[in-house]
Each structure stands twice: as C-alpha cells, then as structure tokens.
Simulated scan of single mutants.
Amino acid sequence: MITESKNFLNNKLVRGDSETFEVLFKLYYTKLTLFSNRFVNDVSVSEEIVADVFTFLWENGHDVKFASSISSYLFKMVQNRSLNYLKHQKIENLYVTYLEKNNLLDEVRSTVESGYEEKELALQINAAINTLPQKCREIFVLSRFSDMKYKEIASQLNISPKTVERQVGIALEKLRQTLKHVSYMLFL
C-alpha cells in the first residue's frame, strides 16, 4: 500500500518509476472503473476511460503536479473524462434523433453505403462540431439539434437574435470547410 508522501510519489512519477506506477495502477484501477461506471453505466467504457487516465499519467507524469493527493487527482480526472464522454454521447444522440425526426436516417444510410461507415461519418461530424468555438458550438447545437428558433436561443443565452443568426452562419461555413470532403451534408 502507498503510504509515502505526496511529494515523494510525485517525484517518482516524474522520473517515470514503473514500480510506483504499477502500484498505483493495481491500487486504483478497480476503484476508478467502478467510480466511472456510476456515470457512464457501461463497464467497457469505464475501463477505457480509466485506461486513458493511466496512459495520460504515465506519458505526462513529468508535468503532473498533485494539488492535494494522487487519489483525488485520479478520481477527478476519471470524473471529468466520464462527464465528457456523456456530453459526447448526448450530441450523438441529438444528431440521430434529428435525423430520425426529419426522416433523413435512410438518406444517411445511403450515404454510408456509398463509401462512409456510419460511425466514421458521425465521428467526423462530431469532430467538426467540436472544433467550433464554445459559444458558436452551443448556439449551433441548440439551433440544429434542439429545434429551437433563433429568438428562443437568444432569450435563453441572453443575446440578440441577430447574434444567433450570425453565429449559426459562421458555424455552417466552418463546418462546410471542415467537412468539404463529405459529398452530402444532410444537416447543413
């Protein structure tokens, strides 16, 4: 069990001490996986999240400074990554719902048959949306996936409808540029 001081452990991780890393992994892997699973409710996804956290820790241990304890640092990282996963899933679900609601799912499937795998297309679209500036992305998602009118978005975000219109226009142009290799953009 790890009973050493936080500075000592931090120094060992900074130096890439594999034994210290292995002890941390064995001590926390199961606990962190169970913790992540409380958020994502999928054991395999939880295992991936925890593995990513440990990979990050191994690759970046030299840059990591533990503010309080290694335990709280690891749990906070797992929590953040689990919540990010849920946000990503929400966007994917909104996109599929939008396609279903507008009877575009069959058209997407035909696009998939002509060269793009459904998962790859969704990943490309999500990646493109995620490249938008935060406020622009938020406005675009509300506009396209929540079926809100510009006035409703403006009211919710406390901005003018003209700003919403401009931001949606900017988002569409950036997405067209980012996704210009995709021959048929259904949601634009």
Rank of each mutant, 00 (worst) to 15 (best):
I2K: 00
E4P: 03
N7T: 09
N7L: 03
N7F: 00
N10P: 01
V14D: 15
S18I: 09
E22T: 01
L24N: 04
K26T: 13
L27Q: 08
T30F: 10
T30C: 07
T33Q: 02
N41W: 13
D42M: 02
E47A: 11
E47D: 11
I49V: 09
I49T: 05
D52K: 01
V53G: 01
L57F: 15
L57G: 14
L57C: 12
N60L: 00
G61P: 06
G61H: 06
D63W: 06
D63K: 06
V64F: 15
S68M: 06
Y73S: 12
L74T: 08
R81D: 14
S82E: 08
L83C: 11
L86V: 00
K87W: 09
Q89I: 02
I91H: 12
E92N: 07
V96I: 10
L99N: 04
N102S: 02
L105A: 09
D106S: 12
E107R: 05
V112N: 07
S114M: 02
Y116N: 08
E117W: 05
E117P: 01
E118S: 10
E120G: 04
A127Q: 10
I129D: 15
N130D: 11
Q134D: 08
K135H: 07
I139T: 11
V141L: 13
V141M: 07
L142I: 00
S146W: 03
D147R: 08
K149W: 12
Y150D: 02
I153N: 00
Q156I: 13
P161E: 12
G169R: 01
G169V: 14
A171D: 11
L172Y: 10
E173R: 05
E173V: 03
R176H: 13
R176K: 04
Q177D: 12
T178M: 09
L179A: 14
L179Y: 13
K180G: 02
K180F: 15
Y184G: 05
